[in-house]
Design a protein around this nucleic acid. Structure first.
Lengths: 153, 153
DNA sequence: GTGCTTGCAAATTCTTTGCAACTTT
DNA sequence: AAAGTTGCAAAGAATTTGCAAGCAC
């Protein structure tokens, strides 16, 4: 299964969302959705712009920013903070899950099954805080970057 | 114990660090250290600048940026990412600990005692990743913001 | 046709760099 | 005195806004 088929459903779903919220499905917007939805790693606005230009050359960076805002409003994407870059975009998930990001190439996957989350409110309570949410991200080397790394050293 | 006395040790320690690394202890630098070290919440560069100007009016924002870079090099501070702001600065800790941040006023404390961290490499492994580090932050309402909130509603 | 969208240019905001004058050691 | 530092002004990045032309519905 390639990305195209794997993520086709996401694009459809996003288009439905936009539609239901009264937004229009324009050509530039479709192209942007497709790039973001099918990416296996978080992208910066400029990276999205560059990739979209390959599909739709006359697009403007501003449209990328504006489309990102729309998607963020609807919680369809996540803004991922990486050590060197604060504003990268990755498709979201419906359920509450966390990201495992390759520090080298950015390749990312969601994981779940953490047993700890219920501890968080206790921890907060111990300090007088009422915990509302949390942010957890793992960083490491993905399989193919490990392989490259071993080859070099 | 007020902040001044509580955090005096941190300022001293930071000054020693700078010294040992061959950096000079100038008046502007001291003022910046003091503001960052005694703050109970993460501050933006401009917030630091504003607070430092109260102590040392002729300071330039550039010096704040440069001092932040020095402190970051030595891992004496942490760059905290908040939902609305990507670049806020907070004093670091020697041990590996995590932050609990008030979403309203920013008041922050470190906590530890998490049992989960050893799970992270397993989770990574299950996805073919070799986990190198993680990023965890809790957000909530601190005691005094809870009180304010209750008063209003 | 109406009203949301787009791309461009310009405006903002945030951060970094070049440099002569100035402290710290 | 030597070398690191500072503040200013200017340069660079990153993001947002105003607006007339264009497209979706």
């Amino acid at each position: 299964m390639d990305n195209e088929s794997q993520f086709a459903g996401i694009v459809d779903e996003w288009e439905r969302h936009l539609n239901q919220s009264g937004y229009r499905l324009t050509q530039p917007r479709r192209a942007i959705l497709r790039v973001i939805a099918t990416s296996t790693r978080p992208l910066t606005p400029v990276e999205i712009y560059d990739q979209v230009r390959a599909l739709s050359p006359s697009i403007g960076l501003v449209t990328v920013y504006r489309t990102i805002d729309r998607l963020a409003e609807m919680s369809l994407i996540e803004r991922v903070h990486q050590s060197d870059n604060c504003q990268t975009i990755f498709r979201g998930t419906q359920e509450h899950r966390h990201l495992l990001v390759c520090g080298q190439c950015g390749e990312s996957v969601y994981f779940d099954g953490l047993e700890i989350e219920h501890q968080f409110s206790e921890i907060g309570h111990a300090h007088g805080y009422q915990v509302t949410h949390h942010w957890l991200q793992l960083e490491g080397l993905c399989q193919s970057c490990q392989a490259k790394h071993n080859k070099i050293s």
